[in-house]
């Protein structure tokens, strides 16, 4: 009951993200992008049409793949990319005056002292998000292995090497925020009223770069590099499984964008209730759109360059963010 609206909402966000990616790229690239499926709203239904088309297409399972893992892979990727949503507070439930106020007591976060739009209330939401989201790359590697394609395999190796680099950055950036705010609960971080980007701009920057890296957005699209590896781990996929394999990374981008919006951009503040939730989503969408906008500006780096950048420049930057977090923690 709680998950279902979230799923619908995520689906819409997903379609919007892909639509925005195509439209933004089209605008920069002297063309129109999706257009004919629904001229009034800028071809938005083209995505739905595409989804239906893929959904109805035949799913081909290569004979020399590991059948079970091959089918499970994209499903699990999408599921694990979606699951962190359960720990992200979208807004605060006001104690009275809102249609959601009757649920005030169900979603009361004792730790932060406020009630939240958050399916699973826990004081360790940051940790849970990191834990669940970091399963996704492992599943990608599994998928690539299961499809038994050489391009997928190279992609798996790249993804594997890359994971270590960006997960470290994401963890350190979030932990430094946790140290700075003395809590691992996102709601408590938002409640302080100081957006993370002001409290620790370096952590925000590192987190954003790691977000791009972790969700295979440009310029860090090495694992899916289409001119080198066809579509990387998902080369052998077709039909609905392909949709899921494509949806997973986008969902993950949105999840990380929501984390960015809440931890670093002040979440729903200064609003609360449903308007607050909308504000959070708008902030997250801006991050999401900006990350898909990168596609039209950048090509992709090489894996060794990303690793060098990740370990040589961003890792020290993350440590610096940690130190800033420790110092900033004194004042917060």
């Amino acid at each position: 009951m709680i998950v279902f609206p979230g799923l619908i909402f995520s689906l819409i966000t997903l379609l919007t993200a892909i639509w925005a990616e195509r439209k933004i790229a089209a605008k920069i690239q002297m063309r129109f992008g999706p257009y004919y499926a629904s001229k009034r709203i800028g071809g938005y239904f083209q995505l739905i049409a595409d989804a239906i088309k893929f959904g109805l297409a035949e799913i081909i399972v290569p004979s020399n793949s590991i059948r079970e893992f091959f089918i499970l892979g994209p499903i699990l990727i999408t599921a694990f990319a979606f699951l962190p949503m359960a720990f992200i507070p979208v807004s605060q439930i006001p104690s009275s005056g809102s249609i959601t106020s009757p649920y005030y007591r169900f979603f009361f976060d004792k730790f932060a002292g406020i009630s939240l739009y958050q399916p699973i209330i826990t004081p360790y939401s940051l940790l849970f998000i990191i834990a669940v989201a970091s399963v996704v790359p492992i599943l990608t590697v599994m998928t690539a292995w299961a499809s038994n394609n050489r391009f997928s395999l190279i992609s798996a190796i790249r993804e594997g090497i890359l994971t270590v680099a960006y997960d470290t950055l994401i963890i350190i950036a979030l932990i430094s925020m946790g140290i700075e705010y003395h809590t691992l609960d996102i709601a408590s971080i938002v409640k302080t009223g100081v957006p993370g980007i002001i409290a620790n701009p370096i952590a925000a920057f590192v987190f954003f770069v790691a977000l791009l890296m972790g969700t295979a957005r440009f310029p860090f699209d090495v694992a899916e590099a289409d001119t080198e590896l066809v579509t990387g781990a998902f080369t052998e996929y077709s039909g609905l499984l392909f949709v899921l394999s494509m949806a997973g990374p986008y969902l993950l981008t949105f999840v990380y964008s929501l984390v960015f919006a809440t931890v670093f951009l002040g979440g729903w503040l200064p609003l609360m209730g449903i308007p607050g939730a909308i504000l959070t989503v708008i902030k997250a969408l801006i991050i999401l759109f900006f990350s898909v906008f990168m596609r039209s500006v950048y090509g992709r780096y090489r894996i060794d360059q990303i690793l060098r950048g990740g370990w040589k420049y961003f890792f020290p930057a993350a440590l610096l963010a940690l130190i800033i977090g420790m110092i900033g923690g004194i004042f917060l």
Partner: peptide, 8 residues
């Protein structure tokens, strides 16, 4: 170009 697209 996002703000002022030139489309052909």
């Amino acid at each position: 170009y996002l703000v002022k697209p030139t489309r052909i």
